[in-house]
């Protein structure tokens, strides 16, 4: 495997001050290779969500280094991190987080809006993304008219429409039955294989983690173990 896409070095995160201070991360070291499919597991409070927030540039570490493509990003400001997310990252959430009363197509077009793509190009790119998740016939439907599985596929289309380097998925199957969950996992696996997108996924369920190539276990704010499947 090539140079790691992402490197965390001695990352800590502390919430609160003084007596009430809580150390969520106590020095995490983690390398993520480009094109990896990594599942992040661990009990509640183990620090996996905090790590995902930092990896997703939604939060900054209290100390330590975060290298993205060999660039230090741990000191970036709010807007710079937003631009980084816009350019390199895509998000999928447990609760789908689509805009209500807005068609699937418009939801998928949203990130392109902030990239300043013109109307025609937005439409083209969004349709390509919807095709990848198999929802072209549903483009004009609003989230309320779609099933949970379809909504999550719209969310995935929204996340990949900008061709990001990394797709961060926070319990993407948490709100779905097992059949839909399998569909979503197959979709993620397929995207990872065909477009080489790096997938980082938080999950509680070992069956879902089984789709990943690498499984990282967190415990008490530290990386407990890393399993790598043979290629």
């Amino acid at each position: 495997m090539s140079e790691p896409l992402i490197r965390l070095r001695g990352v800590t995160k502390q919430f609160g001050e003084g007596e009430a201070a809580f150390r969520a991360l106590k020095g995490v070291d983690l390398d993520i290779a480009a094109g990896d499919f990594m599942a992040v597991m661990g009990p509640s409070g183990s620090g996996k969500s905090t790590t995902m927030n930092i990896l997703g540039c939604l939060d900054v570490p209290s100390s330590g280094a975060y290298l993205f493509r060999d660039h230090h990003v741990e000191h970036l400001g709010r807007d710079q991190r937003a631009l980084l997310r816009r350019r390199y990252l895509g998000f999928v959430f447990q609760g789908f987080n689509l805009l209500a009363r807005t068609s699937a197509l418009e939801n998928v077009e949203l990130p392109l809006l902030y990239r300043g793509e013109d109307k025609r190009r937005r439409h083209e790119m969004a349709m390509v993304a919807l095709e990848k998740v198999g929802l072209v016939p549903w483009a004009r439907h609003t989230p309320a008219e779609l099933s949970g599985g379809q909504q999550q596929r719209v969310a995935i289309a929204r996340a990949i429409v900008t061709h990001p380097d990394v797709l961060l998925a926070d319990e993407p199957t948490g709100n779905l039955d097992s059949e839909r969950s399998v569909e979503i996992m197959e979709l993620l696996t397929d995207l990872n294989r065909t477009s080489g997108i790096t997938v980082l996924m938080v999950t509680h369920e070992p069956e879902m983690a089984a789709y990943a190539r690498t499984i990282v276990h967190f415990r008490d704010g530290l990386v407990e173990s890393i399993e790598r499947k043979p290629a």
């Binding site: 997703g56 937003a82 631009l83 987080n97 990130p111």
Partner: peptide, 8 residues
């Protein structure tokens, strides 16, 4: 959502 997908 807007902030997460990269709105400043």
């Amino acid at each position: 959502i807007r902030l997460a997908i990269g709105a400043v």
